[in-house]
Amino acid sequence: MIAATLAFYLFSALAIVGALNVIFQRNPVHSVLWLIFTFFNAAGLFVLLGAEFVAMILVIVYVGAVAVLFLFVVMMLDINITMVREGFLKYLPVGLLVGGILLAELITVFAGWVMSDSADVLRAAPAPDPSAISNTEALGLILYTDYIYVFQAAGIILLVAMIGSIVLTHRTRAGVRKQVIGDQNARRPSDTLEVVKVESGKGLQ
């Protein structure tokens, strides 16, 4: 038990250190690397909760795919750090406002979980015994039965977003030479070659 508690404090402390570094690093690429570090510690916390599936999905989706694209884009952008810092005081009130609202919402959510009258019912809802069912199976049983419509709707929204971004950014340029593999494979020697028997001493007419 002591080991698990120690691991919890280790992961959470490192997650906080990582998150602070995301904000305070001067170099945006270093910020993204710290963000990845934070994701890892969050995954560690999920493992401690017994939610291995969520932990692995966090690593695969956020670290393995989303953060790679972040890093990719941030690396390519030529960000001028002094320019970014210029408007700091101007944007400070707006930032504080948004942050404050988010903080208030988080407090409401967690306070509601602890103090609200209906929360007792929610907390008493029959959670399956972790030893009887693996959390992959438990998640699947909930996602594909009770929440199937919401789940599918989320999928459709993502699909629309994907198609939308492709349509918006796609442009056809003239003069681009493109390889059509089908055409190349369909070419036969007889299409382009003619084998001629040439008698010696005479040229081709």
């Binding site: 291995e52 690593v59 695969i60 670290v63 790679v68 890093l71 693996s134 992959t136």
Partner: peptide
Amino acid sequence: DLNVGVLYLFAISSLGVY
């Protein structure tokens, strides 16, 4: 003997890009 071993392998192999 992780019960999400396949996912773990996939996660690790997808990190190689870093």
